[in-house]
Amino acid sequence: MKNKDSHIIKTTNLSIGYFNRKGNSCVVDNINLSLNKGNFVCILGKNGIGKSTLIRTLTKVQPKLSGEIILNGEPLEAISNPELAKKMSLVLTERIPESNLTVYELIALGRQPYTNWIGTLSDNDQQQIKQAIKQVHIEGIIDKRHDELSDGQLQKVMIARAIAQDTNLIVLDEPTAHLDIHNKIEIFTLLKKLSKKLHKTILISTHEINLALQLADELWLMNDEGIISGQTEGLITNGSVSKLFSSDLITFDVKLKQFFCISVISHNW
């Protein structure tokens, strides 16, 4: 029973992919993973390996092909959307449609699972929104329209919205794509802080290997053979990380915890 408590998500023999007319096209199968409470977990892997598909399947955005996903001890498909909204919040890669939404209104939408039928914000809701704004330090822009923001600001606003949704689990799909290095570091440290300070479980997919290696508690490494998960340190020392890209162009320096381009190292100019 203790096991159940520490795992927020657990998958058994999960297959992910797409349904189509000719038969299902499976992206990854036989996935057995567990996500531990309060951890900051990064999914790493090259483009097209199925990171987004995994994220979308775990968050019920798209259906699984087979196997089992258990969220908080319940099968994912048995949890209704309104219930799920109180357990898991999302930050997706898709753009928000054009509208007049202000930053404050956008974050307030995070309170929808808790508001009444017409969406009235209670004092508690207002309090939660204020807290979320404070956590990501965006007090200065709350009256701006969402389409006036820079990419970095918008990403912080979306994270604040997820915080306002007050769920134990926050899942983010490539939260630092399109951001400059400064913003990338800011978002990563923010996520790390959320997991430590607010005890949130945070699952992200990312290409920022170097940042992930420094900050993630746990890694899910996706390559052609499957998914390897474990503590970041352990995966570095047992060589799993260096096998992530089976290519002669890239090498991994265990000491520096960094990937390098081989051509730079081997050819002097």
């Binding site: 959307n81 999302l90 997706l92 928000i96 929808q112």
Partner: peptide, 24 residues
Amino acid sequence: LITIIKPLNSLLLGENYAISLGVN
């Protein structure tokens, strides 16, 4: 219309976000 004001608001974020906020 009054009964769908709340889901309409969450649709401002797009369909996937709306679903993640519990919208049918």
